[in-house]
Computed example of a mutant assay.
Amino acid sequence: MPAVSTRNDEDTHLGTTLTGAAVLFVLLRLLAVSHYDWHTTFALLHTLDLEDAPGLFLGTFMADQRISSVLLVLMVPLTVFYAAATRSKSAPLLVTVLVAFLVAHVLTYHHWWVPVAAVVLATLLGVLAVRRRGVERGPERFVLRRIGWIVGVVALVVAAVVATPWVPRERIETGEGVIEAYVVETSPGFLKVLLAGDREFRILRDDEVRSRVELADH
Rank of each mutant, 00 (worst) to 15 (best):
A160I: 13
T174S: 06
E140S: 03
V153F: 11
I150P: 01
E176N: 01
V178E: 04
W166P: 00
I172D: 12
R145H: 06
A163M: 09
V153D: 08
T164F: 10
E170S: 15
I179A: 11
T164S: 03
R141D: 07
V154L: 12
F142K: 10
V154I: 14
V143C: 09
V158E: 12
G148S: 08
E173A: 11
Y182G: 07
A181Y: 01
G177P: 01
E170M: 13
L156N: 12
L144D: 03
A163F: 09
R171M: 10
I179M: 14
V161T: 14
V161L: 14
E170P: 11
I147A: 11
A163N: 07
I150C: 11
A159E: 10
V143R: 02
A163W: 12
V158S: 14
V154E: 04
R169I: 13
P168V: 03
V167L: 03
F142P: 00
V162T: 15
G177C: 06
V167E: 08
A160Q: 15
R137I: 02
P139G: 04
I147P: 03
E140Q: 08
W149D: 11
I150K: 04
I150R: 00
A163D: 12
A181E: 02
T164N: 01
L144R: 01
T174H: 05
Y182C: 06
P165L: 05
F142A: 14
R141E: 06
P139M: 01
G138M: 02
V143S: 02
G152Q: 12
I179Y: 08
V153E: 09
V157S: 07
T164C: 01
I150A: 13
P165W: 11
L144P: 10
R137Y: 05
A181P: 00
P168F: 13
V167H: 10
A159R: 06
V167Y: 05
V178W: 06
W149N: 10
R145M: 08
W149T: 11
V178H: 10
V167P: 00
E170R: 14
A160E: 14
R169S: 10
Y182W: 10
R171I: 03
P165R: 01
P139W: 00
P139L: 02
R146K: 05
I172N: 05
